[in-house]
């Protein structure tokens, strides 16, 4: 009697979606509003430069295009990791997780370089409204990518010692959902922040 009522390690549930997956989707829904608020703030303030350089003067579109491409490719390798995990291929899973993390780290490295370059060109966090809102928006995104990288590397470490609690394939898929979300947000940020002129 009871076995119909309870979700045993997330296999049976009223919706057919496991608890963790449903929880992750809800969390990502909430994150949409977080980035929505930050993007709105940036869109309001991007043209307000009372001091320091304007967006056109600092943006290096070719450079950011390349780092965006790197980040988008990491979504592909993440899919390969999820697929390997579904096939219970531990080696493949770990390999693709590490590659994903490296691509993500490349993107974050690019962002650090970009921030440094902008700062040297005179755009500080406190220079203008544009500066404050630009660094806050892209910084929040960068932190999200960094958290993703930490999760990926932690998962590899835990996986090697076979200590992943619950279903391994599902854990990889969860981190995958988060990773894809962060990538999609970057597509929006890249378009709105870099490509559309003020």
């Amino acid at each position: 009697m009871a076995d119909t009522a309870v979700a045993h390690e997330g296999h049976t549930s009223s919706t057919g979606i496991s608890n963790v997956k449903l929880g992750m989707w809800l969390f990502l829904g909430s994150e949409c509003l977080l980035f929505g608020g930050l993007i709105s703030t940036y869109m309001l303030y991007r043209g307000r430069v009372s001091n320091g350089p304007t967006p056109e003067q600092v943006y290096d579109i070719p450079f950011t295009s390349v780092s965006s491409f790197v980040l988008l490719m990491s979504s592909l390798t993440m899919v390969l990791a999820v697929s390997a995990a579904a096939k219970k291929d531990d080696r493949g899973t770990n390999l693709w997780l590490v590659v994903t993390a490296l691509l993500g780290a490349t993107f974050v490295g690019g962002q650090v370089y970009e921030f440094t370059a902008f700062y040297n060109e005179g755009l500080g966090f406190t220079t203008s409204l544009f500066g404050s809102s630009f660094y806050t928006l892209t910084g929040f995104h960068g932190v999200h990518v960094t958290v993703g990288i930490i999760m990926l590397m932690a998962l590899v470490a835990i996986n090697k010692r076979s200590r992943v609690p619950g279903s391994k394939a599902e854990t990889v898929e969860m981190i995958g959902l988060y990773w894809h979300f962060v990538d999609i947000v970057w597509i929006i940020i890249f378009t709105l922040v870099y490509l559309i002129p003020v």
């Binding site: 309001l44 303030y45 307000r48 009372s50 406190t126 220079t127 409204l129 404050s132």
Partner: peptide
């Protein structure tokens, strides 16, 4: 805490 400009009307904030 970090001197951002978001609500600094002198800098053009809304």
């Amino acid at each position: 805490s970090f001197d951002a400009k978001f609500f600094d009307v002198a800098a053009g904030a809304d």
